[in-house]
């Protein structure tokens, strides 16, 4: 073990760190502002919510917004827990499927040689660029033709193809050295073994980033509930929260603030879980 200052992760505060804090702390305050705001806003009572000039911090925190939200939820025909359950199931399914499909496709596109490979990549890039507003009606027609309108699958299937995810993971896989795969091949590893044992661990940071991106899109998605379903009991939490803020009453504003906090918390949890896997990849870097 090295002595004192050369430790990789210092336990104690060191003077060499001061310049870093000088840069980081003001920026962190700036960047942390919306997080603080969203938390404060949810606990503001009515008079503070509409105070002019608007206040950033809450001075008399209360749970009134959450109580209103619960009352509203209890009054509606579908229980609140149903929306939560729907959202959880849909998000989990999309997350697993999207990551599986993107990593498999990225592995093939990055490390294998076959015909039409470049054309496939171009199609993905086109999908990346295309304006989502334009494909709303064709997508609706496709979904009604397959016959999954107003089912669970209508939430899941349109979202599992994530062009951004594939692009991101493919770009990271390109940097995995070919010689590592060749070495594995010489040892007798098949394509699936290489995919599971080498490729996946090595692109873990990209996968974690892809997870966060996908989660964010699916969790906050109101489009599929809006367009592809008509039964209230299979719609998602994001949709329900959106209808609350659209109420337009004075209470609706407060409830929307509370709802925003509720929608935000799972993002926080997922980020905390996945960020450790983004950061701890140096140990697996393989070739020297």
């Amino acid at each position: 073990m090295a002595v004192g200052g050369t430790k990789v992760n210092p336990k104690k505060f060191e003077t060499s760190q001061i310049p870093l804090y000088v840069y980081l702390l003001p920026l962190a305050v700036l960047m942390g502002a919306p997080i603080v705001y969203i938390i404060c806003h949810a606990f503001k009572p009515m008079d503070e919510l509409f105070a002019f000039p608007p206040k950033f911090f809450v001075s008399h925190p209360s749970l009134i917004n959450f109580q209103n939200l619960m009352q509203q939820a209890a009054a509606s025909t579908v229980p609140f827990s149903r929306y939560v359950f729907n959202s959880l199931v849909v998000t989990a399914a999309v997350l697993v499927l999207a990551i599986l499909i993107s990593t498999m496709a990225a592995f093939a596109l990055s490390k294998m040689r076959f015909r039409l490979k470049n054309i496939m990549m171009e199609i993905n890039n086109l999908a990346l660029m295309f304006v989502a507003t334009a494909v709303v009606i064709p997508r609706y027609l496709t979904i009604s033709t397959i016959g999954i309108l107003d089912t669970w699958l209508a939430h899941i299937l349109p979202l599992i193809a994530m062009p951004v995810c594939l692009f991101l993971i493919k770009q990271f896989m390109d940097q995995v050295p070919d010689s590592l795969l060749e070495a594995a091949q010489l040892e007798g590893a098949g394509s699936f073994t290489i995919y599971l044992k080498i490729i996946l661990p090595m692109v873990k940071p990209a996968i974690a980033t892809g997870c966060i991106l996908t989660f964010q899109q699916v969790w906050n998605n109101t489009e599929t509930s809006n367009l592809f379903t008509s039964t209230e009991s299979i719609r998602t939490l994001a949709f329900y929260m959106n209808t609350l803020s659209g109420v337009g009453t004075v209470q609706g504003q407060g409830m929307a603030a509370a709802a925003a906090l509720i929608m935000f918390v799972p993002n926080l949890v997922l980020f905390i879980i996945s960020q450790s896997s983004v950061m701890n990849t140096m140990a697996h870097s393989g070739l020297k």
Binding site: A105, L109, A127, V135, T142, S191
Partner: peptide, 30 residues
């Protein structure tokens, strides 16, 4: 190698054809 390549790509290809290429062609037609 081709076979394996297409095997790994197949779920993605199916998804792309159903949800993307179809929609694109329809929108181009429209």
């Amino acid at each position: 190698e081709w076979l394996y390549g297409y095997l790994f790509l197949s779920p993605w290809i199916i998804g792309v054809i159903i949800f993307f290429v179809c929609s694109m062609v329809t929108s181009l037609n429209y």
